[in-house]
Design a protein around this nucleic acid. Structure first.
Lengths: 196, 196, 196, 196
DNA sequence: AATGAATGAGATTTCATTCAT
DNA sequence: CATGAATGAAATCTCATTCAT
């Protein structure tokens, strides 16, 4: 866990966890711009000063929340990759509305905060590599059933389509969603393990 | 255009256009959260009060910038659809870094501002429908060369993949980009008009 | 009518009357602090600049509205004094909720605006004298039926009690209202003309 | 006192008391509309930000000043009711220019601020009831010396006449004041305890 | 007779951060 | 380990008024 060396409060201290969770909720419900010392304190039921005691700057807090969120995503992706039909499970993860919505917030946040961007970049690269590694092993030659496809391209393609669907749903856009999902299903069927 | 009847100042008035352009630049360079009376005024070289004279609320300004940006996108998409290889041109548009980056900002903005979200939703739906209409006519039976594909799904798939590539590039992520582009190129080749 | 010599728009011009009426409504509904160039213009359906064209300063407008309101009160008081039972009619006027509420606004306004205070003072003094003159003539010796009473004191007493009742009603206070009205009725009965 | 649980700073903290007192003076001298962060800070000799540290919203400050002012009135009324000639002492309180002037300001304030109106309404009702209770006990049957009078009506009548006199004095109106005071004196004489 | 443009001032509120205890 | 106090900066918005046309 040795990630942030200059952390002050003990990593397992209750207030610290409460603050991080309150911030996560705030971002999920009102967007990253709603994150402020006061708002977080109010939601956590703690004094504003305590937020700064645990997280000297707002950036520190945002990076930590990003890190915790990323770790949760990691676990979900690992679970997906370890399931019976890893590719289909991965796709389910990519179109999971609640997860993707907050992950888009983190992405928007990354464009504003250098510290967050750097963490997100490194972590995304790492997770992409991890997915590719697993998929390459699991899919093996089956990937050739889709002309021009490669595991690395496939993960990006699925992630991009999933995110687009979730993003557009939030805007009320519907045209093309069912059709896009059908296209993806065609691929998943072709690559499914039981398809001998 | 007959959009905002209570608009102050002619649509072509110099300060109005200057304000909108300054705001667009600000969003492109520093994100939508950088938009504030002072920042816009400073960049536009105008007095802060004048911003509110033309745009009573920040929402009014943001909606206008969104509208102007959407109109520019419309023109680019129409140009793409009217070109020799419409699908490839559309794809070029979707991976155009400068355009997509700011469009992602508008999307993030939409999650925070009701007025922007509504406009974005309606406009996106409209443009999606327009693309589908044109592609359906242009591609005709050629769409069957790609198993499971349909024009409506195709536009979403291309847009999603394009956006993902641009977004990840901003984070410094590279794995899978070349491979994803190769997958798309395979489709574009198959659907290209000259491939009789 | 020769009241304000430096008036610009013709006194009978339509916009002028519309502005004054809009301001009166604004004061009645939202209090004098709601009076501003913009708010008045919005309610009158006119351009903000036009308000300043007719009333160079906000004070000019407020004094005019005060004047018009006072003139209306004058007419109502004159009607009361000319009626069959002038004293009872006067009392009815003093407890008329809608009239008294706005008159209290004018009073609050008077404490803030010198021009309004001066006008209000002079006008109140004049109307008090007018009421005393009429009551003295009408009541004659009947005033002696109330020990220690005098027409001048009587008008102030009735006005004060009426205003207190209206003011307190606005606050939701009820205790003593019915009893106070009963006290006043005792006086009115004693002084009534038909009581030979 | 246990009124505002979320109050920042001890009730006796120096800056807090200074702010409240500065606000009270401001209201007394220039009216409630003169109350603003800047004005209060300037008069209190404190930084504007500190005002909002102690009173997050202007309403919070106004309600507090109203509450403090009401408490002072309470004490004065209790003193009056405990004196030798309670009714005369009460009347002295009602025509005390400095007290009544600011109390009229609070009343005007109540029409604009919901929080103040509610507090004022509840408090006025309570104090009226308190006065009635004491007067009923003290006056006993003597109240019958005034035809049609009742303790509840009497307090309202005295308060209304007193307020009217103070209010009109501020406008420079004089007619009827001496006469009205004479009427009240007649009542006070009749109800005085020593008149056996 | 009317109006659009412009602007300096100020109101209200929120914020991140520092510091002393 | 925690917190109350304090503050400079800025965000959003409203306002009265002036001026040129």
């Amino acid at each position: 866990m040795a990630v942030a060396p200059r952390r002050i409060g003990a990593e397992t201290s209750a207030p610290r966890a409460i603050i991080v969770e309150a911030t996560r909720q705030l971002i999920a419900e009102e967007g990253y711009s709603a994150v402020s010392t006061r708002r977080v304190a109010a939601r956590a039921g703690l004094k504003p000063s305590l937020i700064h005691y645990y997280f000297p700057t707002t950036d520190d807090l945002l990076v930590e929340v990003t890190r915790i969120g990323a770790e949760e995503s990691d676990r979900m992706i690992e679970d997906a990759l370890a399931s019976e039909d890893p590719l289909r499970a991965l796709w389910q993860f990519f179109v999971d509305t609640s997860r993707t919505a907050i992950s888009l917030e983190f992405m928007a946040l990354a464009t504003r905060r250098d510290a967050v961007r750097q963490y997100m970049g490194e972590h995304s690269e790492m997770m992409r590599a991890r997915q590719v590694e697993i998929l390459r092993r699991i899919l093996g030659d089956r990937i050739d059933r889709l002309e021009g496809f490669d595991p690395a391209g496939l993960t990006l393609v699925l992630a991009g389509i999933g995110r687009a669907i979730v993003m557009e749903e939030a805007l009320g856009v519907k045209t093309g969603h069912a059709e896009a999902m059908k296209i993806v299903e065609t691929w998943l069927d072709k690559l499914a393990p039981d398809q001998s």
